[in-house]
Design a protein around this nucleic acid. Sequence first.
DNA 1: CCTACCGATCGGTAGG
DNA 2: CCTACCGATCGGTAGG
Lengths: 197, 197
Amino acid sequence: MPRRKTEPAAEANRRTEVLRAAARLFVEKGFEATTTRDIAEAAGMRSGSPFYHFRSKLDLLKAVILEGLAASEARQQAAIAGVDDPLDRLHRLVRAHLGSLFEHDTNAPLLIGETRALDAAARRQIAEAFDRYQIPWQQTLDALVAQGTLTSAAPPLRLWLFGMLNWSTHWYRPDGAMTLDALADSAVAMLLGQAPG
Amino acid sequence: MPRRKTEPAAEANRRTEVLRAAARLFVEKGFEATTTRDIAEAAGMRSGSPFYHFRSKLDLLKAVILEGLAASEARQQAAIAGVDDPLDRLHRLVRAHLGSLFEHDTNAPLLIGETRALDAAARRQIAEAFDRYQIPWQQTLDALVAQGTLTSAAPPLRLWLFGMLNWSTHWYRPDGAMTLDALADSAVAMLLGQAPG
DNA sequence: CCTACCGATCGGTAGG
DNA sequence: CCTACCGATCGGTAGG
């Protein structure tokens, strides 16, 4: 077997570095305002090198979103594994989602707005991935209706929840007085209507 | 008194046309992806002409957001004038906000994400305007606590509400089965926790 | 993954 | 508000 110039593992690492740099910059400055040169520099490469790993800037955006979302799904599954109580599950789903938003490893939800730039096929693929991500949410909301904690779990409820959490990136500061746990508590209280008792 | 080449009223109209074209394009394609040439064309002008009305593309963005927000405030005031019942007021505030989002005349909230591009002074000015816009919301939420309809109206509650409404631009389609009135009803039900009775 | 480079486009301006 | 234009930057590529 012929030796390769670069080890496959090392090559994968470099790809991941480009991906992570792109994710951070897309979130900070937006997709259009980020240049492929910014990304190359942040990954410690020359300006043309990102194109060795990704066909185009759009391909890079698509990968950032889909792979970020896959990481969020993994975090979500780990958070609810073996948890049966619906209210407990809801709380863990909310906390896991806020973790994905603010704990930096996976920030796919922050980039939903940037999918504008992608073609219809890529947008559809991303929309489907987000739908799958929300399946456990809908199941949990349905369970809360079944036990009488909520009156209705029609689909808009899930979307209201998803939206209020995602929008928190515009006002919540992780380094402020409110912890992520407290933020999750607040969000759940909002959903339950803070009914006395 | 010397005659002017162009009437002041006509000149103001042209400025408004540029502003409206820019607002629509910024929302559709995003600030960075919209070129000043796109805006000029949409306003029926040559490529350099928008700069007769606005110093720079950034100035145009700032004006779109601040003037759009002023229009939203006017709509809000008209919606709640003379309405005292807190729940009725809340419902009208929500409906007015959804109207500003989807009924196309004023779309400032959609552009919050684009303020990244502006300098700190402009961002602060816009943030203050959004704070003022939400004052009636906080007052109404406090009144709902006073009458026992809500348990707490700590500031995050207002921000959750603002966020869930704004995020609806990512999923709600005005031409679908759900009317804007039904959407407002759903949002209010979400806030109140759909408590039975 | 780097060097060297290209064609296209962009925000903005001078002068009328 | 138009004409004509500029300097800078950008995504992407050939060839190694």
